[in-house]
Nucleic acid binder design. Sequence first.
DNA 1: AAGAGGCCCTGATAGC
DNA 2: TGCTATCAGGGCCTCT
Length: 287
Amino acid sequence: MPELPEVEIVRQSLNKKILEKKVKKVLVRNRNLRFKIPSNFEIFLKEKKIIKVKRFAKYLIFNLSDNSNILLHLGMTGTIHLIKNENKDFLTNTSFYSSPQLPDKHNHVEISFKNLKLIYNDPRRFGFFQIIENKDLLKKRFLNLGPEPFDPRFNEKYINFFCKNKIKKIKDLLLDQNFVSGIGNIYVSEILFCCKINPSIKVNLLKKNELRKIIINTRKILLNAIKKGGSSIRDFKNINGNKGNFQKHFKVYDREGLNCKRIKCKGIIKKKFLSNRSTYFCNICQK
DNA sequence: AAGAGGCCCTGATAGC
DNA sequence: TGCTATCAGGGCCTCT
């Protein structure tokens, strides 16, 4: 489901609602997520307070009262829902879900606070929870991942270095989380359109000003997506069940066969499989 | 070393 | 109506 902007939306809404709350009960219905939920998960969480919800790239980090952390990756279809404990009908009667039916089939984890319950739902189970015992281990966990797009380390010097003498396709590089963390399949198409760069082009052929554009536009597009509440294609909703709006601003993603949105460009949006994922680009302005 | 492909899963949709 | 095939926002792996 979520790339960096969507995870950030979830983080922001969680941060408003579960800070300083103490975990009263943990129920794991299905441990078989991408990685098995550890057997001590429930005991580990119980009676601890959520101090802060942070984010790195597509990972949510729950800082707990004893300096430990719970890491959560939403995979493709992971969603978080908050409901009020005392009202059992709340799920079916409110807008937390767009469907009138309670999709509790894939509610794998429930974390209860005094008046509030956090539910983790994930049909495809590509998401996962991890216990990170302390700050050092947290740092270590992300050591091999590249900087976030907003990190000053993600700069011209950095991208020039990575692109020199490499014959990787630019799409592959931007999706490589070890190079830069947080970009996924939707935003990579949008970023490259914005830069007028063909996703198949080899990085060693890109000029310095094009690489500079990639840095600038990556930040611009991700920030704009956050501002618009993320993208809601398929099932992404924030924890209040509201949809984001950025999908209305897609220039190329899921627009195969439609006209290029650039004024005066007569191009048609094409779809192509790159890195085993669908890729959208204009056949004229991204030559 | 790049890149194609497979795999982990379920569900929505399209085509017959 | 009901079957099958294909495709999904992630990330890991292996093989060539």
